[in-house]
Amino acid sequence: MGITLKKGEKINLTKGNPGLKNIKLGLGWDINNFDSGYDYDLDVSVFMVGESGRVERDEDFVFYNNLKHISGAVEHLGDNRTGEGDGDDEEILVDLKLIPNHIQKIAVAVTIYEAKERRQNFGQVSNSYIRVLNSENDEEILRYDLGEEFSIETAIVACELYKYNGEWKFSAVGSGFEGGLEALCKNYGLNV
Rank of each mutant, 00 (worst) to 15 (best):
I3W: 09
K6H: 07
L13H: 02
T14K: 04
T14H: 07
K15E: 14
N17I: 00
L20V: 01
N22H: 03
N22Q: 02
I23N: 03
G26M: 09
L27F: 12
L27G: 13
L27Q: 10
G28R: 05
W29S: 09
I31D: 15
I31W: 12
N33L: 14
N33P: 15
Y40L: 15
Y40M: 12
V44D: 07
V44K: 06
M48G: 01
S52Q: 02
G53R: 04
G53P: 03
V55M: 02
V55E: 01
E56H: 00
D60R: 02
F61T: 01
N65R: 08
N65I: 00
L67H: 13
K68E: 15
V74D: 09
E75P: 03
E75I: 06
H76Q: 07
G78D: 06
G78A: 09
T82R: 07
G85K: 01
D86N: 11
L93V: 03
V94N: 02
D95E: 13
H102G: 06
K105N: 05
I106D: 00
V108F: 08
E114W: 01
K116I: 05
N121D: 13
F122R: 15
F122E: 15
Q124D: 05
S128L: 13
I130D: 04
I130H: 10
L133H: 12
N134D: 15
E139M: 10
E139S: 10
I141P: 01
R143H: 07
D145M: 01
L146G: 03
G147K: 11
E149N: 11
E149S: 08
F150L: 09
S151G: 00
S151L: 04
I152L: 13
T154I: 06
T154P: 07
A155K: 07
Y164V: 00
G166A: 14
K169F: 14
A172P: 07
V173K: 05
S175K: 06
F177C: 03
G179E: 09
C185V: 13
Y188F: 15
G189T: 00
N191Y: 11
